[in-house]
Every structure is written in structure tokens, then in C-alpha cells.
Amino acid sequence: MRSRSSFAIVTNNGCVSNMTEPIPALEVHDLDAWYGHTQALRKISLAIVEQRITAIIGPSGCGKSTFIRCLNRINDLIGGFRVAGRVLFQGQDLYAPDVDPIEIRLRIGMVFQKPNPFPKSIYDNVAYGPRLCGLKDPVRLDLLVEESLKKAALWDEVKDKLRRSALALSGGQQQRLCIARALAVEPEVLLLDEPCSALDPIATARIEDLLLDLKKNYTMVIVTHNMQQAARVSDSTAFFMLGQLVEFGPTSRIFTNPLEKVTEDYITGRFG
């Protein structure tokens, strides 16, 4: 069981107030986002606490994916995309002009909905990032690959076939490989955009166990359509609708006694 003593009490407008004062890894202030003329996010403010799992839930098109993609500037790659407001990562504004988005993406990793390993060997998938960062030493690479695969709870299943194609792995294994690949560059935050939606329940349970285990060392933000999943793994839950943050609070409260009627309607399946 997770400890509740340092649990973040997050008020409706996203302010963190607690006596034990949890450390925010990411602080979002009045974030607006547009794709061309279409506004996708409106004045989002919330704090993502270090070494906690924050779940983002909401109906399709509510802006939850856009939101987490703003957290490591991966949306920059989309033409016509722009943001206003601030995203502070350890006090530093991610969107300040002198910030290198490549470096941000190394420190804030991302795992996508569909497992997307490179058409390379298992080993090369995990070694890809570190190599790109200039790590050439084969001994250190071996160590890093092993460590990352262990952290992703995949090592025992693949240690004898590291040179085989990653594409031969099962969906659940591929997704854990993608997590290992993200971990290999030693990020501080892991963003997960519906990481289990293409997986069966057993593979999903393995990923969820993995996330709870990784929580000791990483801050995670997970977008999910599966509300039971949000309830199972996350410490805080944010409910988005129509590009706005409707409610943000401890997961146990959101799922037993939400403050907003819309949140209630959504999580009880009476939406619309």
C-alpha cells in the first residue's frame, strides 16, 4: 500500500497545499494550446508531484493527449501547433527560448499507445538512445541495457535473445521494451499515453505492476481511457473535458466523491 502521509492535497484549481509539502516535478500554469486556429487546451494549471503517478482521464478529444505531449514538447513537431502559459520543470520553463527540446525529451521520456519498437534487435532498441547521446563503450552499454530491461521487468524474458528482432516480441513485451528504451536515457519523468490500450489484461497487469514499481524513482503521468486503470495505479487524477481541467485531486477522492457533477457523470458512465 502506498503511504498517505505525504499525499498531495490538490485543490480544484491545481494548487498543492499540504503540510508535508510534496515536491512538484512539473508545474503547469495557465497552459493554452492551439492546433492552427483550434484551441485544444484552455488555461490548464496543475502540479505534478515527484515520484507519484498522475492519471489524466477524460472523453476522447478532451485534450488529455495534447496535454501530456506539451510536457516534453513533443507537440512542437506538429505544424501549426503553439502554446501559451508556462510549464515549469524543476523551476525551469520548458518553453523558454534557450531551452533545447531534444534535451527535454531525454529527461522527460514518453511511451505511446501502440508499442513502437524500432525494427532492430532488442539490444539495439534499448541502446539506441544512449548511443545517440554518445555512449560508445560496449561494457557500459551492456550494463545499461541490462539495467534498463530489468527496470522494465523484461530482462528475464529476453536475456537469451537480445540480438533477435524486437518485432518478434509479444505486444506486452514490446511495450515493456519501449519503457526500457525510454528508461535507458535515464529520464526523470515518464509520460505514458494510453500505454495499455493495445494490450490484453495480463500484459496490462504487468505494465501496471511495473509502473507502481518504477514510482520509487520516477515521476509518471499516464493518460488512460480505462478508468479502473487510473483508479488502480494513480495517486492523483485529473479529469479533462473540452480542453479544460474540470477537477484534479487524490484518486481515492475522485473515484468515491468527486466534487463536480461532470466528473461524477463521466466516471459513473452517465456521460452526455
Binding site: M227, A231, F255, T256, N257, E264, I267, T268
Partner: peptide, 9 residues
């Protein structure tokens, strides 16, 4: 049904 919120209550 895995009820939540007021249904759970």
C-alpha cells in the same frame, strides 16, 4: 459493474 462515486456510495 465496478461502481464509482455516488453509485459506489
Amino acid at each position: 459493474r465496478q461502481p464509482t462515486a455516488s453509485d459506489l456510495r
